[in-house]
Design a protein around this nucleic acid. Structure first.
Ligand SMILES: [Mn+2]
Ligand SMILES: [Mn+2]
Ligand SMILES: [Zn+2]
Ligand SMILES: [Zn+2]
Lengths: 149, 149
DNA sequence: CCCCTAGATGCAAATGATTTGCAATTGCAT
DNA sequence: ATGCAATTGCAAATCATTTGCATCTAGGGG
């Protein structure tokens, strides 16, 4: 499921005259293979699982590089830096489990209305936003088949 | 404007049998004197401006302490830890300037509807949320009296 | 008011994540 | 195949935050 997306992104990069290196392609493949947000250590480990043995500093530099090129997104979740692939022009938020720390994408966004309200009530010019929801994922609710309400 | 609020909070602490120390009262006063989110260095500096010369580790420990006691809130903004006083039972979000990094509270929250949508569309149990808006504050818009749209 | 002690603080060292300088390597255009 | 700018590995530096421990202190009891 990763193949096509990654190849398309790689072609985008090539079109911009950028170099394609194992670290770059490797990280794109790692991020394309999941819908979870991954932290740096997870990316580093997944890379070597995939046979890509790059240095930690290269992982950091490459994540910066891909972020600046708007191919991935970095977000801070519970004090931890996490990364995800930016597919198409999607705009999504995440549901984050407080127990197992799994994340799942969620495609609804209340920002359009919110933006208008801000403009109406303040002189602030809203441009971007960050929204995350914390709670319990389905598995963790079952596992502790208890009485969260 | 800080006096009454801080005194009320201090009384709350005393009621719980907690000790009131210069660091605790000092940090509460610093946070009560602004509606900005402050980072650790700003809090440290404000303390000594106010004649409270405590160690950095004390600032960290006290911020943890006050957070755990639900008197202040810690939030991560653009990779930086920031703190605010928790007054009453207010629930607000923040408008954060991308230029000058000032923050201003904003009291509208789209979460009620959002929560229902999540429950309708997923098996995730939403409990908390984080929402921040990034853009340009009034001053920064004027200063660069330019053509943001 | 003085004592006493659990808890708070100062200090310096440890930690952990991220960044950086530099020499060696590599992608890719020619 | 060659050349060079960009990328990488490595080790050291940085930076925010945490921690161990000896010393202080807030505030309750006498
Ligand atoms: Mn959104
Ligand atoms: Mn809200
Ligand atoms: Zn979970
Ligand atoms: Zn501003």
């Amino acid at each position: 499921m990763s193949g096509k997306t990654v190849q398309a992104i790689v072609n985008t990069l090539k079109g911009r005259g950028e170099k394609i290196t194992p670290a770059r392609k490797g990280i794109l493949e790692v991020l394309a293979s999941t819908d979870q947000l991954l932290n740096v250590a997870e990316i580093y480990e997944a890379l070597r699982t995939n046979g890509v043995f790059v240095n930690y500093s290269t992982v950091y530099r490459t994540l910066d590089y891909l972020s600046k090129n708007n191919l991935i997104e970095k977000l801070v979740v519970t004090g931890e830096n996490k990364y995800k692939l930016l597919k198409h022009r999607e705009h999504i938020h995440h549901l984050i489990c407080k127990k197992c720390h799994s994340t799942q994408p969620f495609d609804y966004c209340p920002y359009d209305d919110l933006k208008d309200i801000i403009k109406a009530k303040t002189n602030f010019l809203p441009l971007e936003h960050r929204l995350e929801i914390y709670g319990y994922c389905e598995e963790c609710q079952k596992k502790h088949n208890s009485n969260y309400k």
